[in-house]
């Protein structure tokens, strides 16, 4: 009992700002856009719109918590989506197509991870390079042409399906967030991720295989980016080299707003979900308020700046 009280006392309330912000923005739009915002279809729409970002955000939580960064997720989305669509087109076997897409993400993550752990380059540089490389691959893969996705099962499972009347996108979001939360909060792996992000030297001397942890987080990041690409291709019923091209900033914003430390050692999967929904809600509200795309980008940029400043200030005050 006293231990539980102790535990509550050590909760850092600043880590949970995202939930207050979420509530605040929710209430604000509910009042100002009262005729449309609160409808079930609009709210589900927010979650569906956010689904690929949420999925990627979960992977990015692991990367940032380890003290690394993966800038290549946006272009991984396009490459994985195109590979999936091409395999589906030629084999007409949707499970094979989905696995091929996922494997693409895992391989990209592995390559990023190997450059970071074996060649010992900063992940910022490695993933900046692979990002550019993958943009090229995505454009080359189909000569800038889109590839249609027509398989009904695939489109149901990764796009328009419903289970118990709830969009499959919501289920994917739930599944990935739950898995991510379990891995980070309940497994030894999660504890090692946070230790490596906090102090690689301390992790090393206690026998944690630091490089193996780093390799794994890049593979998780590649896999979630690939899943996001698969979800895009299912929802849009086709893949294009432009998929995911503006997602990296949204993902980083969602994750950092959600309470994951940019400098490592701290990660919040549920916070990242809240961050992602918050960003989607703001987007949604801004569209309803009649702002154009450029104005939306400006508002998003301002939010990211504020979030990053808060994140780094919190780190310094430690």
């Amino acid at each position: 009992m006293t231990l539980i009280l102790d535990r509550l006392r050590t909760v850092n309330w600043r880590d949970h700002v995202v939930y207050f912000a979420f509530a605040l923005v929710f209430v604000y739009f509910a009042i100002t856009q009262s005729d449309y915002f609160l409808t079930t279809s609009n709210l589900t729409n927010v979650i569906i719109q956010a689904a690929p970002i949420t999925v990627m955000a979960v992977g990015t939580v692991f990367v940032l918590a380890t003290g690394e960064i993966d800038l290549s997720i946006g272009s991984t989305v396009a490459v994985a989506a195109l590979v999936t669509a091409k395999v589906l087109e030629s084999t007409e076997a949707w499970p094979l197509a989905a696995l091929a897409g996922l494997a693409t993400g895992l391989v990209i993550g592995l390559v990023n991870g190997l450059f970071v752990t074996v060649v010992r380059l900063p992940s910022f540089l490695v993933t900046l390079a692979t990002m550019g490389l993958l943009v090229g691959v995505a454009r080359q893969l189909t000569d800038l042409k889109s590839v249609p996705v027509l398989d009904d099962s695939f489109v149901w499972l990764f796009g328009g399906g419903k289970i118990l009347g709830i969009s499959i996108m919501v289920w994917w979001t739930l599944l990935v967030v739950l898995l991510g939360w379990h891995l980070l909060r309940q497994r030894r792996f999660g504890a090692h991720v946070l230790a490596v992000g906090n102090s690689p030297a301390a992790a090393q001397v206690t026998g944690i295989k630091v490089n193996r942890v780093r390799l794994k987080v890049f593979m998780i990041s590649g896999a979630t980016a690939a899943l996001a690409g698969i979800l895009y291709s299912g929802r849009l019923q086709g893949a294009r080299y432009t998929l995911g091209e503006s997602d990296m900033m949204s993902v980083l914003a969602a994750v950092i707003v959600g309470g994951t430390a940019l400098a490592g050692g701290k990660g919040a999967v549920v916070g990242a979900l809240a961050g992602s929904l918050l960003m989607a809600m703001i987007n949604n509200g801004l569209i309803l308020a009649g702002l154009n795309v450029s104005q939306q980008m400006i508002v998003r940029g301002v939010i990211i700046l504020i979030a990053v400043s808060l994140s780094l200030r919190a780190k310094k005050s430690n």
Partner: peptide, 10 residues
């Protein structure tokens, strides 16, 4: 060789 953002028991 400790990680300062984690609790004592960790």
């Amino acid at each position: 060789a400790l990680v300062d953002q984690q609790p004592v028991y960790m």
